[in-house]
Design a protein around this nucleic acid. Structure first.
Lengths: 135, 135
DNA sequence: CTTGACCTTCCAACGATGGGAACCTATATC
DNA sequence: GATATAGGTTCCCATCGTTGGAAGGTCAAG
């Protein structure tokens, strides 16, 4: 299979496949005489694995670890669980932070008349609330 | 005031102040004969405004708009509200997406025994759930 | 043989930030 | 005045994952 076909089949763009190869996330593809990369069904499988990992928000470094565990048939599931748990902790932290921001912003928006007058609590906040961490 | 002082006073690093100047978010600073940038209290005020905007997750492009409205004493608050509302919509979308990811991951983690055996529902998911959008 | 679709490599950009090198200036102390 | 040090200046590089394009080679069909 050519790179375009695996791209379609895996949901990973050809650009990204080359990039993953370059950065060592995936091994160098076999080449035809023409120089074209040549892929097999198992490559598609691996790329789908990567794709799913990205969809779940894992950074590439973690996906690299997960790929290693995936290949290692004698792995311990505890190791996988550890990586996933660390990731979900980061997710929850990011969610909390965004929620706090959204909530502050929501309050400001509700206080803003949103008409043709210049008075605006949102601008007032930006102007005056720089230091106090009161998000 | 030197750049280090305004950095401390505004909470924006000297690096970022120079960057904001370079990208046109803030006007070029006055210079002393030595070439040092020279700032006033109103510059600190503006940088605090920017800082607060960043803390609220506004991208620099939006902060640019907000700065314009801030300076425009005849602005309409509706315009500010529009920008803030658009931003909060994006925030909520991102939060939703992260929450869906976290929830999927949580389920997988709960199904994983996390012991020394190799069987792992997390890896199974990565292996098999690439296409169906069932996050 | 030409056309168009595909492939190759290389380079740049995004957005916001940090790090560092090489060099210049200000200030305080000896 | 000399020197140490703390701060400023510019310029380049790295992050992280992804996309875009340019210049050129390959393949298949007409």
């Amino acid at each position: 299979m050519n790179i375009g076909e695996v791209a379609k089949a895996s949901g990973v763009s050809a650009k990204m496949i080359r990039y993953y190869e370059q950065t060592g996330l995936i091994p160098p593809a076999n080449r035809r005489e023409s120089g074209y990369r040549n892929y097999s069904a198992s490559d598609v499988h691996m790329l789908r694995f990567i794709r799913r990992g990205r969809d779940l928000g894992f950074p590439v470094a973690q996906i690299n670890e997960l790929l290693g565990l995936w290949r290692d048939k004698s792995r311990q599931s505890a190791e996988v669980k550890r990586i996933a748990t660390a990731h979900i902790t980061e997710l929850r932290e990011k969610i909390d932070s965004l929620e706090q921001i959204a909530s502050t912003l929501q309050t400001l928006i509700e206080c803003c008349s949103g008409d043709d007058r210049p008075d605006c609590p949102i601008l007032d906040d930006l102007e005056n609330t720089a230091d106090r961490q009161q998000l």
